[in-house]
Simulated assay, not measured.
Amino acid sequence: MAVSVLFRCLRTELNKVSFQKHIECLHTSCGLFAADKALLVKLRKSTGYTFINCKKALEKFNNDITQAESWLHEQAQKEGWSKASKLEGRRAKEGLIGLLMKDNAAVMVEVNCETDFVARNEKFQQLVQNVALATMAHHQSKTPSAYIKSLLSSEDLSKLAMVEGPSVADQLALTIGRLGEKISLRRAVSIAVPADWHIGSYVHGAVTGQTSLPMGHYGALVVFQGGPEGQVEVVGKRLGQHIVGESPLMLGNMEDIPCGESETRLLAQNFLLDPKYTVGQYLAQQNARVLDFVRYKCGERSTEEAE
């Protein structure tokens, strides 16, 4: 009986000591716990991965944040490739059009996702920008002596190399792994013009994000010559606005007369910003001439897809 009482007393004292040590640790903010917490917050903020995954990565690599971040990217990329195949049958009709202009060149890309919520995500917008930069880097050349226009398919885009870091395909898988829904590289166009030509551009439904690239749900590029001195950029933007708003299918001729509300020839359409003139008449006033244009609507289906 006495022995039993003695053991109970010893156990009580040991519990008291353990509890006291725990309280002391909480009050003094143990150095190891504070360091872990700071690294966890930093890793979570820089990568966007979940708290649990960031904690797991830091524990795995003994608080080495560089190795932890690299491992998180690898895991997300692996998960992305797996998810990409599982989500293949789902349709991604949301997303963004991205425009990039540089010197006498321009690219317009479309990247799709399933929901507008993901389209507003910083990681998705970064992917759009990276695809545009990769497209520009791939097709950029010295000042051309003639007009160059290249159309890129989804497969073409996936083969591009990033300016820095992983390939476009790997970047796509990484983003799918992070955001958890189907994302697809839809298409792109790259344009290069001689020094005396101009490229106008316009994005409609623009989103406000962390990237510097103009992005929205509609986009247009227009190639033209001439225009008033100092007003070339304005003329290019006005033409881009018209192309987005009126959806022309072909160029037509400067002398074309409108055939009604279903007019699909650009130059014969009533000019959106001043309907008393046709686009051809507006261009004549500006001493300008349109040579080509491209219009994208995010999520639109081609004739082949509709069939």
Rank of each mutant, 00 (worst) to 15 (best):
A92W: 08
Y147R: 06
L96H: 10
W81Q: 12
S153K: 03
Y147V: 07
V128G: 06
Q140H: 14
R120S: 02
M136R: 03
A161Y: 09
Q129W: 00
E69I: 11
Y147I: 08
V168M: 06
I176S: 01
R120W: 00
N130L: 10
P166A: 10
K142H: 13
V168L: 08
S85D: 11
A68E: 08
A132E: 02
Q126F: 12
N130E: 13
K102D: 14
L133G: 07
L152E: 04
K93S: 14
V111P: 01
V128N: 06
T135K: 00
E69K: 15
Y147H: 09
S82R: 13
L152T: 07
R91D: 09
N112S: 08
I148R: 14
S145K: 12
V131M: 06
D170W: 01
A119D: 02
Q171G: 13
K159R: 07
M101K: 15
F124V: 11
L133S: 12
S85W: 01
T175M: 03
A119L: 03
G89Y: 00
T115R: 00
S141Q: 14
H138G: 01
A106K: 03
L151W: 10
K102I: 07
V109I: 12
T175Y: 06
F117N: 02
I97A: 07
F117I: 00
Q77N: 10
E88P: 02
K78V: 09
Q75L: 14
A132M: 04
M108Y: 05
A132P: 02
I176D: 05
E88M: 09
T143D: 12
A106L: 03
L127Y: 09
L99E: 09
G89V: 00
M162S: 15
S141K: 13
M162H: 14
R90Q: 09
Q75Y: 08
A134Y: 02
K93V: 14
S85K: 08
L72H: 11
A68M: 09
F117M: 01
G95F: 05
L100Y: 04
R120T: 00
E74D: 15
G89K: 05
R91S: 11
A106C: 03
V107R: 00
V168I: 13
W71N: 14
Y147P: 00
C113S: 04
L72D: 09
T135H: 00
N121H: 06
A173I: 02
G80F: 04
L87H: 05
E122Y: 08
A146D: 12
Y147C: 01
Q77W: 05
G95K: 05
L133R: 13
S70N: 14
Q126W: 12
N121A: 01
T115F: 00
F117P: 01
S70A: 12
K159A: 07
A132C: 03
A119K: 01
L133T: 13
G95C: 05
N121R: 00
N121M: 00
